[in-house]
Write a protein that binds this DNA or RNA. Structure first.
Lengths: 215, 215, 215, 215
DNA sequence: TATGAATGAGCATTCATTCAT
DNA sequence: CATGAATGAATGCTCATTCAT
């Protein structure tokens, strides 16, 4: 078995152990390739107990997705201070995002890779979380436009596309930063922030965005 | 069966039929959920013939990935005219990319969703293709910097990260454009080009990148 | 849960509650399909308590069979007045039989359908009850023959067969009367009594048996 | 394995072997207690082949019911000569019925015990067969009444009840004759015919029905 | 070139039953 | 008197893969 067998634990604790094991297994093997046997084993319990508490493989997977989605959005929200300027908020959010995904690779794999590839119901769960992030970014873009004292002339659909592109780039970079050794969460965030805020054209004109000195 | 049964066809033709069926099935059901039965049926042949020609499910999946990866990179390359300025080349590449993925949703699903989620060997195949695109973009960035008559002061790793972010954003937008009705490949390309070249900051200062008029 | 949870009840009462729940569940789902979980739940107790009182699923099923068998034979016996003529006794017994089975469909299902279909030990229990009824009917036939002032010329084995046929017909009609709406216990008893006493031949000669007027 | 392994048989043959094994297993163990493993083993094939040919346990059971029901009704029909008088036809039908059930105890157990106890869909299958027999008997009763030159004064529902009782008695006696050693199909048929045609009352008056001498 | 016949191995799920309190 | 926590052992079903023709 994969864990020390602590017998007779309260239900809530056992459930978390099971979710831990499930996230790890789903993240590494994939939804279909992960077997309930392996998950139960890794959690240090028998299979029937997993079913007693979490009903089915589908329900277990959904529970994993929900837990990890909440953990990620909570982490991003907790990393952003509401009062500061929009670009600053974006920067903080990105840092929190890259930090969390780096620290929870299996959870991130479940959300980013597995949940989207195994049927509507699961994809819908991640989609909801993703929308939260997209909305958050969209608002920041709008606020930033207002702060720049310019016409908020960007049409709505355009803004949606930009937010989508930004979130997509972040998701992609998270995998890149995890794979490439020596890329810290901070570096990943800086790269993306630069790209998003200044654009390639500007950067090459020697006018990059630069992170606040104390970060 | 899914196709008219034409007996005794040359091997090359049969293989393409099988790959067509496989890409469609893998793209829609996922690697594990796709059964060899369904693929053989959809291809209009018996299962043993599939094995005779393509050896195993893994090999078949790999063959799908390779074919679709080649088709995508070929499409991008074919869409870019070598002589033109770097930003123009980038724009053309993005258009070709979004057009191809929109026209081959199953192939794109195989590459973007399935291949990365089912183990190292398959992920490595897509990774190779992705690298081709990243390298292509990286070169464009370097050339653009040179064309801007500036020091290539961007450190190499930084450039790699930018290219990565751009490709990631493109991949993400491909899914978005496919899902949202009414978003054309051209619109998606424009959104991303604007975002990448000018950056959010510039765009809000009223200095967006704008596509060449004749496109 | 299926019943109000009254804590701390005397054992005898709890046992009856469990048997009630078990008869209902076994009767409706069948022996194998009935789960101890469902029975315990319907009885409003925890599973270990069911095991504490009734030992095992087999024992529980046996207890159900015995209780229902006794209830049925008691009902038949109670419905028959000893002093009256044999055909009259048979008529009273049939009425009691059809009335009881109509009022206890789950119990009757346990005896007639479930107990006989799930292995020797259970079938033997019902067989014993059935024998009681067959013996009762056999005696009535013998007495009737004597009352008719005829030689008891019917050989013993023949009489046994007749009783068997009568009981079998009754069992079959019980299901029929329960299924067909509008067939009362009395009607079912009359149909069978007529059939058994007069026979088809006689009935068609216009000489049916007729029930006593006051019934 | 339970049978000699003859490899590579045509599908139709294998299917019959599987049905043979299934009828035997279902008849002896019951629907739920019978395992697909045991059936496959007894048929001398692997489980997947059983599923390939018969789809599911439910479908397999249904196939058994249909085959055995058809065999039984065919046997009864084949045993009855259309031209002869009604009581003679009934007698021939009963003989064929008892002979067939005695020769196919497992098939009879499937129909009489198992199919009726495991859910509506299965019960409906047997019900259909039973109805055929009931209709057959009902017609015989009507014809007999006409042949007796009497008013067909028996109301329709009454006749239905009589036919039901007769078939029920036959079913019950089939089990009895199978269980009691030394009771031949002919004896069982005679007992029932006597009971049904003459009635207990008549028999005790010394006026039994008697089988045609040549039988 | 092509296929009907066949299987070993694995997987999600359920259930009767017991232990510790 | 009563229960929450836990499991060993099946069971129905599917799938990738091969053999004989």
């Amino acid at each position: 078995m994969g864990a020390v067998k602590n017998k007779r634990m309260p239900r809530a604790v056992r459930e978390q152990q099971m979710l831990d094991a499930a996230v790890r297994t789903f993240g590494q093997r994939g939804y279909r390739a992960a077997s309930m046997d392996e998950i139960a084993d890794l959690a240090g319990v028998s299979k029937p107990l997993v079913y007693l508490y979490l009903n089915s493989k589908e329900d277990l997977f959904t529970a994993c997705i929900r837990r990890e989605a909440k953990a990620l959005t909570d982490a991003v929200r907790a990393g952003v201070r509401p009062g500061v300027p929009a670009d600053r908020q974006l920067w903080e959010g990105l840092r929190a995002f890259f930090t969390h995904t780096a620290e929870n690779p299996d959870g991130w794999a479940v959300l980013h890779l597995q949940a989207r590839t195994h049927g509507e119901p699961f994809a819908a769960e991640v989609f909801a979380m993703r929308e939260e992030l997209v909305v958050f970014v969209t608002q920041l873009i709008v606020v930033a436009a207002r702060e720049a004292h310019r016409d908020p002339s960007l049409p709505e659909r355009e803004v949606a596309g930009l937010a989508e592109a930004l979130v997509g780039a972040a998701e992609s970079l998270a995998a890149w930063a995890n794979a490439a050794p020596g890329i810290s969460a901070k570096q990943a965030a800086a790269t993306l922030m630069n790209f998003a805020w200044s654009g390639l054209g500007n950067m090459m004109e020697g006018r990059p965005w630069s992170p606040p000195p104390q970060d």
